[in-house]
Design a protein around this nucleic acid. Structure first.
Lengths: 173, 173
DNA sequence: CGATAATTGTTATAGAGTATATCAAATAGC
DNA sequence: GCTATTTGATATACTCTATAACAATTATCG
């Protein structure tokens, strides 16, 4: 492997010393430098998104709702009378994948499929009373714990600016 | 299913009319209202992140590098002499999963594992010359196409503010 | 009106990414 | 020297995303 020759030479010289240094020096040598990586919007977005979803799951743990499920319930509440395809498309979920999602929510009696009277191929997806109640509780948890924490970290103005920028990216890119 | 009684009554009244309306009216009735969903930072983040990754893949398609692979190469370049665990931890990738990632990059001769002289359990992961060349090309594509597009959409000031906020979230949440 | 194309929900399957458990070899700590 | 911990690897499972195909239904067009 000739491609390794210069790599070998470099690695021998720069290999990080074994962990026998004083603690202070070890701290310095432990953290990797992100360098240009921290300027990559995609990377920063991904890391932030993961953190936010983790926080969501923790805050809403009593209700055992994922972000995606919460989104579905919100959308059903705001847009009564819509079929599966419409809900799925709006959320960027593919139709086959939305079936299982809906199965899960329906099995918990949070929503239901009703055969449409206008088009017998499709289902109108409706929130049940239980679903409405769970959604209300979820909204409270999200507002009081999840979004409040983000507001605390960023402040209202920055949070609003962030939302605006993200919407712009999603729309224009 | 008693939970459905009120849901049935509501659905019958509000079911979206079949697609027999004039076109103008149909346009109005097609778009779902996001309502509170658009105020959810997590949702907006996820949608933006997906868009950005799609754009990245398109811009860097000639080099067939995923965002994660690009991140690895950047980190290897910036932090010579580090082992697998360190690289993986920094990127939030679990050790077992990093093995396959590295297999892929190594099979393309973009990097190599060198058994460490300080600790024979571990590999120092090094960029090859080929890897360095591919990284340079990727950086150019990313700068000229991917990040430039984002800069175009947001402007430099907003882009910088966005990066800052995302870093804050990732650090504090 | 009939034939064809398109749509809706579903099933099956595959791929990518993430998480956990386990292991052998090596190292660290006492 | 013994035990605990670490490193990379393997195996496996789960979650999310994507594609193909199908039956039933609806839309379109001549």
């Amino acid at each position: 492997m000739t491609v390794l020759k210069s790599a070998v030479a470099n690695a021998v010289k720069t290999a990080r010393p074994a962990r026998k240094e004083p603690l202070e020096s070890a701290v310095e040598n432990t953290e990797l430098q992100l360098g240009e990586l921290s300027e990559q919007l995609g990377y920063s977005l991904k890391r932030a998104q993961l953190k936010i979803f983790e926080n969501f799951l923790r805050c809403v743990a009593p209700l055992q709702l994922t972000p995606a499920q919460f989104s579905v319930l919100l959308l059903l509440d705001k847009n009564p009378g819509r079929n599966q395809t419409e809900i799925a498309n709006t959320l960027g979920i593919l139709r086959p994948n939305f079936v299982a999602m809906l199965d899960g929510l329906e099995s918990r009696e949070l929503c239901a499929r009703l055969r449409s009277t206008n088009d017998r191929r499709s289902h109108i997806v409706v929130l049940t009373d239980k679903g409405r109640a769970v959604l209300a509780r979820a909204k409270k948890l999200v507002a009081a714990k999840h979004e409040a924490r983000l507001n605390e970290i960023l402040g209202p103005a920055k949070r609003a600016a962030l939302l605006d920028m993200l919407a712009t990216i999603a729309r224009e890119l």
